[in-house]
Each structure stands twice: as C-alpha cells, then as structure tokens.
C-alpha cells in the first residue's frame, strides 16, 4: 500500500526562469533600452568634442570627456544678436515660472474649494465650461488673447505670459483640487461651520493642512507644464530678449547658420530638460499620482 501522504504535498516547486518570465523580462528590457537611449545619447554627445562626433558613432561613450559644450551652451551660444547663451532663457523661464505657479495654485485651490464645499447656483455650469475649454485647441483662442493682452498693455511682456499660463493651467488644477477636496468628509466641513469657522478660516485651518500632497502634485504639474511650454512663449513674447528657455533652445538649435555644433546643441537640450527631469526623478510616485489624477476625470 502506498502512503496516503505520497504524491504532491506542500508548496509547488518554482522554476526560477520560466518561459513566461523570459518573455516578460526580455520584452521589458528591450523596450526600456528604446526609452532610455535618447537620454543616454544626449549625455554622451554633450560630453564629446566635435572631432569625435564627426567620427560618427552617436552611441559610443566619449573617449575624452569635455565640459566645453555645456559652458558654451549656457553662456555663449547665440540667438540672433544675443550671444549670452541659454542662461538668458533660463532666467526668463524662472521669472515666468515662479509667479505663474504660485498664483495659479492659489487661485485653483480656492476655486476647487468653492466647487467642492461652497457650491452656489451656477458654479457647476461655470466649471463645466472651464473643463470643456480645456479641450478646445489653443490655436482657437490665441488671437483673442493677443487682443485682450494688448488692451491691458501686457502683450509681449512676461506678466502677460504669466496671465496666459494662469488661464490655461486653471482647468486641470481646479479639477485636481476639486476632486481632492470632495473626498474630505462633508461632516468635517459641517463641524467647522458649527464651530463658527467661516469661508477663509475653514480653508486655511482645516482644508489646507489636510491637503499638502495635492498641493505638491499640482505644483509638479504646473512646473513641468509651464517650463515645457513653447506655444505661448513664442506667441505672447515679442522680443527675443525675453523668450523662455524652450523657445530660445529651438532658436539656437534650428536657426544656426554654418557648422552645426551638435555637442553644444545636446548640452543645451539637456539643460532645458534638466528642471522637469529633476522634478520627475525627485518626486517619484507623486508625479505618477498627479498625471493619473489629472487624466482620470472626476
């Protein structure tokens, strides 16, 4: 007689490398190379000298590392008559970015607060209009805004561009805050009202301290969005002196006469991408959460 306990017992032995696993990891690695390659190419190209680039292997690591292209891109590259490099665009972008982000987050958070806790007759209608507006191609609204800004005397200035970023950043950020605040229990809001807190007191003392993550998420979205903008910069800034970094980068790379300095171009490209990249790698999960929250409508 065989023992009743013979045959399979206990945990099933696992194969370390099953056929499925090889397919899964293999695919992921190949795809990961496609995604990682451009960043790698940017870095190695920006560290090579021109003679080495002309030898023609863009994937080869630099034989002789030089930081000269970075220095040139930052401080010497020319756009039009200005030859003080991308630093000019960088500081323009910073000057656009800071007020845009601060004001748009303030406005959007208060608007989201109104839409989630202090609804009034018609507030939802305006919100729907705002969200529909987010899907209208920007080109449709570009020229009327030129007129509005010209009337206000702000056309061509950095402040005008800040206002444009405020308007176009409003739908996504308002949605973000509104949905987050709507998840705060209504009873908390009622309790605060019974405790005698008014509109601003509830916002500052109850809602804001509970919502730090969403402020960070909104900041990430705004910083990357505004930093990466090209269309509004090129439309509403009239003088090359005040171009934001992306516009200046495009001008440096695409409108050079004579010999193209690919290493300088790639250094400039990397420099422009550095701010959003740093934010991306530093914020990790919050970035993912931000885009997921923004994408999945509420």
């Amino acid at each position: 007689m065989t023992d009743a306990m013979s045959g399979p017992r206990g945990a099933k032995p696992k194969k370390a490398l099953s056929r499925n696993n090889i397919i899964v990891y293999g695919t992921l690695f190949v795809v990961a190379i496609y995604y990682a390659l451009p960043l790698y190419v940017m870095i190695v190209t920006s560290l090579k000298g021109m003679p080495e680039i002309r030898m023609g292997n863009i994937f080869a690591p630099p034989m002789e590392v030089t930081f000269q292209p970075w220095v040139k891109a930052w401080a010497e590259a020319c756009t039009g008559i200005n030859c003080d490099g991308l630093s000019r665009g960088f500081w323009n972008s910073v000057r656009i970015l800071i007020p845009s982000v601060v004001i748009s987050i303030s406005v959007a958070s208060v608007t989201g607060y109104v839409l989630s806790m202090w609804k009034f007759k018609g507030s939802e209608v305006f919100f729907s209009m705002l969200m529909i507006g987010a899907f209208i191609p920007y080109q449709v609204m570009l020229y009327p805004i030129v007129i509005l800004l010209r009337e206000a005397g702000l056309y061509g200035s950095l402040s005008g561009l800040v206002l444009v970023h405020l308007a176009f950043g409003m739908p996504i950020n308002t949605l973000l805050f509104r949905n987050y605040f709507a998840s705060i229990p209504e009873e908390l809001f009622k309790a605060a009202r019974v405790d005698g807190a008014g509109f601003w007191a509830i916002f500052v003392k109850i809602v804001m301290p509970m919502s730090l993550p969403i402020f960070v998420v909104s900041m990430i979205i705004q910083v990357t969005g505004i930093w990466n903008d090209f269309l509004f910069g090129v439309t509403y800034i009239s003088s090359p002196d005040r171009y934001p970094m992306t516009v200046q980068l495009n001008n440096i790379v695409n409108s050079v006469q004579g010999v193209k300095e690919y290493n300088v171009n790639m250094a400039a490209t990397l420099l422009t991408g550095l701010v959003p990249l740093v934010i991306y790698f530093a914020s990790g999960k919050l970035f993912v959460r931000g885009i997921a929250a923004g994408a999945v409508k509420g």
Binding site: P185, E187, L188, K190, A191, A192, K205, I206, M210
Partner: peptide, 8 residues
C-alpha cells in the same frame, strides 16, 4: 457627527 468629524 456619525464619523466624529474630528480635525485630523
């Protein structure tokens, strides 16, 4: 309130 509604 039912959910206590304490300010966290």
């Amino acid at each position: 309130f039912q959910s206590y509604a304490l300010y966290p």
